[in-house]
Amino acid sequence: MTDPVVSLSKVEFAWTPGATILDVPSFSVEKAERIFLRGPSGSGKSTLLGLIAGVLTPQSGTVTVMGQDMATLPGHQRDRLRANHLGVIFQMFNLVPYLSVRENVALPCRFSKRRKDKVRQAGGIDREAERLLGRLGLSDDDILDRSVRQLSVGQQQRVAAARALIGEPALIMADEPTSALDADHRDQFIDLLSEEARRSEAALLFVSHDASLAGLFDRAVDLQDLNAVKSGVAA
């Protein structure tokens, strides 16, 4: 069995000293595994994603991403690890408003040579962006050159998904990406995202408060079971 993509061990995190909001004894994401992480808002979901992404540092414990102990890496190498191996989708406002669809999708290649090379092997930015957007249901001819401001929320989320997927990162983290979508679009979006993640053998960590989505994933985890801190009111 290969190393897990992400593994957390005895991780404790507090925004202010003494007020621990996250205490995760053990959690891991295996290669190409699609996990549904459920938790009400304020349960520390975003904090957990921040720890995995390496933009937050735990007070104790170890976070390992792609076999690398984040605590031992200097900041710029954590940033590089994130650029190379992680794709992130937020709840909304995922896109840089002044860039075109093409530029938004291509943005990770700007910060990761690894993903840029992968895209080049796959036939170039335009082709790969067009392919991903097409797979996600955005197949208009001029889609690449459009301003992201002209897109609906649903379309924006798909562009964000394409950006997360481009260059085949090992892990896609999605933080409530469907909460702004209606039910039909939501299921369709998750299907497409799962399918593309599977195709590129990326693990998917999907965070939502909506337990009804759990059936669409390989495994469902409740953050409240994961987290030894039970207050549930922390930010």
Binding site: F90, R110, F111
Partner: peptide, 16 residues
């Protein structure tokens, strides 16, 4: 602020 956090999420370093 949002724009900056998007760039950070994509892999931009604080120096960027």
């Amino acid at each position: 602020r949002r724009e900056m956090s998007i760039l950070r999420a994509i892999g931009a370093q604080p120096a960027h």
